[in-house]
């Protein structure tokens, strides 16, 4: 016979101690980026050229159970021919310590504008991908992922 009463009694202790854990684990090691940092990083890369929110699809799981390794896939609507191809895709975060996650450089040999990797996400956020085409035009897309907190955070 399991003793539910005893288990419930410890729940209060978990709540108290767990509260401490949440507070500690949410203390930033260094300041997180915000939307303004993302925009600054984007300007550093592409200047003030106009960006159209089209043609770029960012695929991320709706929920990530651990922010250390989240599968990311980006695809861009492009024929990928010798004179019309995606030159670069930049992955940007509005919440990580650094807003620039990575850059992919494609060539006409790439054949298909689709790239996948695994990224770190320090919390729930919308990851943005900006694609620069061979004609210099810029396109963007973004997707939000909820990053959940693990049960027992080992500090």
């Amino acid at each position: 016979m399991r003793d539910k009463a005893l288990f419930n009694a410890t729940r209060r202790q978990i709540l108290t101690a767990g509260g401490g854990a949440v507070l500690i684990s949410s203390l930033p090691l260094s300041a997180f980026a915000d939307e303004a940092d993302l925009l600054r990083a984007r300007t550093d890369l592409f200047g003030d050229r106009p960006i159209q929110e089209e043609r770029v699809t960012v695929k991320l799981p709706p929920i990530a159970e651990n922010g250390h390794s989240v599968p990311l896939s980006v695809s861009v609507d492009s024929p990928m021919t010798d004179d019309d191809y995606v030159k670069q895709i930049a992955i940007l975060s509005p919440r990580n310590t650094l807003p620039l996650i990575g850059q992919f450089h494609l060539t006409p040999f790439s054949g298909k504008a689709q790239v996948s990797t695994r990224i770190r996400m320090s919390g729930t956020q919308a990851i943005q991908a900006v694609a620069e085409m061979s004609d210099g035009s810029l396109w963007a897309g973004s997707t939000e992922t909820v990053v959940t907190l693990a049960a027992c955070v080992v500090l």
Binding site: R2, F7, T10, I14, G18, E65, T148, L149, A150, A151
Partner: peptide, 18 residues
């Protein structure tokens, strides 16, 4: 807490995000 309390008595339930 014992291992038992989570892993035998409460497996399948949620603990924070897990």
């Amino acid at each position: 807490l014992s291992c038992q309390q989570c892993h035998t008595e409460n497996w399948g339930t949620q603990l924070r995000g897990d």
